[in-house]
Write a protein that binds this DNA or RNA. Structure first.
Lengths: 220, 220
DNA sequence: CGCGCCCTCGCCATTTCGGGGGAGGGGATT
DNA sequence: AATCCCCTCCCCCGAAATGGCGAGGGCGCG
C-alpha cells in the first residue's frame, strides 16, 4: 500500500496543491486511507469522532456527485468547531471531494484541498475537475486491487424470496403483512427472514435489514 | 427528459458508434432509461426479464469499475441465449459499460455498444475510455437533476440520543441492550425509538432504522 | 442417486415490542 | 415568563417477534 501513498504525494505535487487524500470505508467499519494530511490531524480526526461531524463526509454520503466544500453547510456548531480545528491542523480552506461507491456498501472519498482565495480555487477546479474525477476512480481502482481480500469480497447472497422479505421489512411491513403481500403463509415468511438473518450474520431482524441495506442488497 | 434522449443520440453520433444507453435503477424498482436501442429490443428485454440474466447487469452490480463486455462471463446457457437474442435485435457485438452508484442503493449503467472486430474496438476504447467515464457521470448528473422524486428527500433531524438509539438498533442490539450500553433505563430508550419512529414517519422500529440508514442519518 | 438449497406449511413457548397512561428537570427560544 | 424540545424515569398489558420442534416437494450438481 506504500505505492498508493507515494502516488497521492506525486499527484499532489503535480497539481501543485496542499493536500490530496483517499479514504475508503467498507462494511462493518473497515477503513483504509492514504494521503498527505498530517498524522497529527488524522489521529485527532479519529479521536474526536469527526467522521460523524465532518460535513464533507455527511454530504458525500448522501450525494452522487463531487462537491466543492464551499457548497456545503457549515452552519452547525459542531461543523464550525470541526472547521476551525481542521484549519489549525493544516487542512486547506478550499476543498473538492469526489464520492465513490462500490457494491456491498463500499464507500470512498477522494479529496483535494488547498489554501487560497475563492477565485484561484475556481480556476483550479475549472482546469482540473474532469482529471480529478478520473484520478479519483483511478486511485480507487488501485486501492481495491491492493486491498486485502476479506475487505473487498463479501459474497453474501440472499435468495429471491429472502430479498423480497428484507425489502418489505425495510418498508415497515410486519411478517403477517408480508405474508399477505407475497400470498404465502406467515411461517414461510419467517423462514425467509431467519434465513436472511443467518446469512447476514445478523442478531435480529432489524440488524439484518440494516445490513442488507448497507450492503446494497436491497434499497428503499 | 427528452433532453437526455437527444443527448444520447448526439453523443452516439459524435463517437461514431451504433448504440449508447443510460439506464437508472432506483428505489422500489423505479427505473428510467434512455438511449438508442430499438423499442422492440427494450420491450423484449423487459418482457423476458433479461434484467436478471444480462451478464452486463449482473457483473456491473458486483463491480466498481467499467467493464468491456469481452471480459464478462457468457458461458451460462441463459447468457448465451440472451446474447443471441441481443445480437438479433441490433445490439453490437462489442460493448463497454460504466456502473454508477448513488446513495440509497441507486444504481445506473452507461453503455456504449458497436459492431466491429476486436482490434477496432480496442482502439476505440483506448481513445475514448476516459471520456466515456466522464460522460457517464455527466449524463447521470443530468438524469438526477431531471428525476422527480429522489431529490425531494425531506431533511429529518433526529436528536443525538435518537441517533444513538438508531445506530445501536442498526447493529442488532435490543432495547434492553441499548439501555445498558447508554447507561439509561430501557423505558428511556423506548422514548427515543418512538421519537425517531415518529419523526421518520416509520411504521415500526425496523422501518425507522431502514429510513435512517437510507437517509444517511446513520451508518453501520 | 444422494446432497444441498430453495420454497412451502404447522404448533408451542418465551421474549421483545408497541401503545397507553403518567412524572420531573434542564436548556433554548421567543 | 412562557413554551417548546430534550433527557430521564415509572406502571400495565396486549400484540408481535423469536426460538425450537417438526413436515414435504422441487431443482440442480457432482
Amino acid at each position: 500500500m506504500e505505492d498508493l501513498q507515494r502516488l497521492t504525494e506525486e499527484m499532489r505535487d503535480c497539481l501543485g496543491i496542499d493536500h490530496l487524500v483517499y479514504h475508503w470505508m467498507g462494511a462493518q467499519g473497515a477503513q483504509y486511507g492514504c494521503g498527505t494530511y498530517s498524522p497529527l490531524w488524522l489521529a485527532r480526526y479519529a479521536a474526536q469522532g469527526y467522521l460523524r461531524v465532518d460535513p464533507v463526509i455527511q454530504s458525500c454520503f448522501q450525494r452522487v456527485h463531487p462537491v466543492d466544500w464551499k457548497a456545503l453547510d457549515w452552519s452547525s456548531k459542531a461543523a464550525r468547531a470541526f472547521l476551525k480545528d481542521a484549519l489549525a491542523h493544516g487542512v486547506g480552506n478550499q476543498g473538492f471531494t469526489v464520492p465513490i461507491r462500490g457494491p456491498n456498501g463500499q464507500f470512498a472519498i477522494f479529496t483535494v484541498s488547498h489554501s487560497c482565495d475563492d477565485a484561484l480555487w475556481a480556476d483550479f477546479l475549472a482546469q482540473w475537475r474532469a482529471e480529478l474525477i478520473l484520478a479519483a476512480h483511478g486511485i480507487n481502482a488501485k486501492a481495491l486491487e491492493l486491498m486485502p481480500e476479506p475487505a473487498t469480497q463479501t459474497p453474501v447472497a440472499l435468495s429471491p424470496r429472502e430479498l423480497d422479505a428484507m425489502r418489505l421489512l425495510a418498508t415497515g411491513l410486519s411478517r403477517a403483512q408480508i405474508a399477505a403481500e407475497l400470498n404465502i403463509s406467515e411461517h414461510t415468511v419467517r423462514v425467509y427472514i431467519e434465513g436472511a438473518r443467518f446469512k447476514l450474520g445478523a442478531l435480529n431482524t432489524t440488524h439484518a435489514v440494516a445490513r442488507a441495506l448497507s450492503c446494497g442488497l436491497i434499497a428503499i
